[in-house]
Nucleic acid binder design. Structure first.
Lengths: 146, 146
DNA sequence: GATGCGCTGGTCGAGTTCCTCCACAAGGCG
DNA sequence: CGCCTTGTGGAGGAACTCGACCAGCGCATC
């Protein structure tokens, strides 16, 4: 990816609502040119979308946890992600190397909901779980430096 | 938080670039009223910012990993997050319950960079590390359901 | 080595839409 | 009643978006 696109992406990572006009000023391009490039980045899949960064506690999702997941039957075909995709509390699902197969990042209002969620995960995917509760998060969702 | 704010936040989680006019149509409020509410949400810290969601591979950050971190000296005052905040490869830092003290989420171009980063983490924070490499991520950064 | 063609990626301008601020109204509440 | 909060509506200015046009470049053709 070339220099200009990279700078545009960098700027949009830092402020996803920046206007095309400002992006143009920051990159030395005209508004239309920037707009065109952003559209291309979007349809190439480099930019997958935009979102607000929200304080989880303010929306009643005070409890974050990582759940490591391992199928009961390692020989069965592994469709864990599809089985879990319907659980909205799961923010992310990573397939990982190591003892367990997947790491899930989940957010729930409180401990009771976590207990409930764990039961639903186990029954939906046929897996055993190991949960690591997040006590606090010093930082999160930092934009990467390109 | 009341119903209307919640719906606005929900919409902005799904599309961080939605215009105030559209937010108004979706919530039945006038453009000005929505704008006012969003501003309040921002300055109350409910909305911390906006960002583009970018395909990591497209920006040469193909390797994601979780690094669990534990100080060499458990009795020393723990300022690990501050010591690591300067390392741009670290996307998130969570203090967790369990055997280790923190879980870091990091992104680097490749294995060599991970090795290098681990060395920098250890020397900067005086910690031992255990890293879990992400093989693939079925989904990530899903907007929570409010 | 020129000529000419198509492609890519840029500027410019104009019409439309959106943002943003302000004045004012409607509803709690002491 | 007065005050605070939260809405509405409108107007001026800024931003978006589209089309027309242009410059550079690769390349087949003469």
């Amino acid at each position: 990816m070339e220099e200009l696109d990279q700078r545009i992406v960098q700027l949009l990572l830092q402020d996803g609502r920046m206007s095309y006009t400002d992006l143009g000023k920051a990159t030395g391009l005209s508004t239309s040119a920037v707009h065109q490039r952003v559209r291309r980045l979007e349809q190439r899949g480099v930019i997958r979308g935009y979102t607000a960064i929200v304080d989880p506690e303010a929306v009643d999702l005070a409890l974050t946890a990582f759940i490591s997941v391992k199928p009961f039957d390692p020989s069965a075909p592994d469709d864990t992600p599809e089985r879990l995709v319907g659980l909205a509390e799961i923010e992310a699902c990573h397939s990982v190397a190591g003892d367990e197969n997947y790491i899930l990042k989940v957010r729930v209002p409180g401990p009771g909901d976590l207990e409930d969620l764990l039961a639903r995960i186990r029954s939906a995917a046929g897996v055993s779980t190991r949960t690591t509760v997040v006590l606090s998060t010093p930082y999160e969702a930092r934009p990467p430096k390109l």
